[in-house]
Amino acid sequence: MSSYLVKRIFTMMITILGVSVLVFMIIHLIPGNPINHILGDFATEESIRELEIRLGLDRSIPVQYFSYMLNAIQGDLGTSYITGYTVVEEILNRIPITAQLALFSMVFGSITGIVIGVIAAVKKNTIYDQLAMLLALVGISAPGFWIALFLILLFSYQLNIFPISGYNGFYSLVLPSITLGLGTAGSIARMTRSSMLDVIKQDYIRTAKAKGAGVYRLIFRHSLQNALIPVVTLIGMQFGYLMAGAVVTETVFALPGLGSLIVSAISTRDIPTVQGLLLFMAAMIIIVNFVVDLLYTKLDPRIQYE
């Protein structure tokens, strides 16, 4: 187990390193040069040169990369040329909102998904099952941005239940979380259903049934607990999807999170911010997946890694 852990941590490091190279390359392929944007229309040769030196853009790409990574390891992801804020400051400012949004979406998605999945599994091959699965697939297929617009129109504007936009406590995250959690709910419902059906087929459930265990007891005490093991992994895998979904959701609901930050940073060519954010988000996703993997082995004793 411990050697497995060491090996996993090692590959995780390699992946993060690879991601950093990739991000750095992508960023330096972005056309146009930040200098033009910073100095605007009144740049002189002299001021361009001066700024290049100040920002270290006169050095070769590999040198820039190594000095960037050296700083990154020490927790310095650079400073925005434009806003004057350090990237770490910006991330810390905004991460609570994205984290809460991701968490609430996950909670909403998991509860809805598991309930629907259980219903479908218990009522297997009935009309309820089919409707539940169609619903789950609709959740996966519907464009979030489109759902969001009509949720705002209905619940915020017409019915006046939730705030329309901006961040102002829990209530302002309800609609965004529903929007973002729909896809997750769909996937979890499907996973729960099939995983439950797998478990129900197994011997010990048959035994429990033969012993005369009640239906609900059977569902909740025996089947669901085991059926949820793969669902937990899925929840971990959904994290990346939620990060991407946050970009669109935060834009529509004007939430000041990481997703809306990356959109505005791209549109103002705020290179250090885009770079730092991509790196940070990717690292988060890798770490979350790693943790979920470890949890998975803890949760399911049948799984053993060498």
Binding site: G18, V19, L22, L29, I30, A244, V248, V274, L278
Partner: peptide, 20 residues
């Protein structure tokens, strides 16, 4: 390499590529 690409959720990656 694919693992590295996989860490980026597809929409996020698409946005980054469009930026380039």
């Amino acid at each position: 390499f694919i693992d590295i690409l996989m860490t980026f959720p597809s929409l996020l990656m698409a946005i980054a590529i469009v930026a380039v």
